[in-house]
Amino acid sequence: MLFGLPLALGGARITYDSLSQLDLAQPLAAIVDDLGEDLLQICCANGDIVDVGWYPAWNEQGGLRVVTVRGQDWEAPVFSAQPALQPQALLQALHAALAQAAQP
């Protein structure tokens, strides 16, 4: 569960989470100090990593980025999305990132 909504992880596990603590109903100015590059990391059974961060960190002009990284190649993610800072949009991007991680 993330923001009270289901997030099916399958064989993956959350290894870092400062995202679920955020109240996304708050104005951006109220939570921007909590929006860093490291918000959520999910390690998949095949070694892929799904990562969520805010870029540039702690900046109201920034935005979310969800990536799936394969083989520790952070420079060339196999999936990348920039969802809105809304639970449904973020969950949709996470579902897509996890689906990409499930593919060989």
Rank of each mutant, 00 (worst) to 15 (best):
P56I: 05
L91A: 08
D38I: 02
S18H: 11
L22R: 05
D34M: 10
M1E: 11
P104R: 08
L64G: 03
D73Q: 12
A99Q: 14
F79N: 03
Q92V: 10
P6M: 11
D38G: 05
A57P: 02
Q26N: 06
Q72P: 00
P104S: 09
A81Q: 12
A81N: 04
W74T: 10
R65T: 09
A97C: 10
R13M: 11
W54S: 01
A25C: 05
P87V: 08
G11M: 02
G71N: 14
V69A: 00
L39Q: 06
P87I: 08
A30W: 00
W54A: 01
G36L: 02
Q41M: 15
Q21M: 12
D23R: 14
A99L: 13
W58Q: 12
L40H: 06
G62H: 05
L28P: 01
G10N: 11
E60D: 05
L64H: 01
I31G: 01
D48A: 13
Q61C: 09
V69W: 00
P87C: 09
Q21I: 06
V67C: 08
Q88R: 13
A30Y: 00
A81V: 01
Q103S: 10
G62S: 03
V67E: 07
Q86I: 07
L91M: 06
L90V: 10
Q21E: 15
Q41V: 14
P56M: 10
Q61G: 13
L40A: 08
A57I: 03
A45N: 01
L19F: 12
L98T: 09
P104H: 05
L22A: 11
Q92M: 07
L91C: 06
A89H: 10
M1Q: 11
A81S: 15
V69T: 12
L64M: 14
V32R: 05
A25K: 09
C43A: 14
A76R: 12
R70H: 13
Q88W: 02
P104N: 05
C43M: 10
A30Q: 14
A25M: 07
F3T: 09
L22C: 08
L5Q: 15
C43N: 14
Y55Q: 06
G4A: 09
L24G: 07
R65N: 04
P6W: 13
M1C: 07
I42R: 04
A45G: 00
L98Q: 08
I42F: 09
P56A: 06
E37Y: 09
E75P: 00
A84F: 07
W74Y: 15
A96E: 15
P83F: 09
V78I: 15
A30D: 15
A81C: 04
D17S: 09
W54G: 03
E75L: 11
Q72C: 06
D33R: 11
W54Y: 15
P104C: 05
Q72A: 13
Q41Y: 10
V69N: 00
A102V: 04
A102R: 13
L7M: 11
E60F: 01
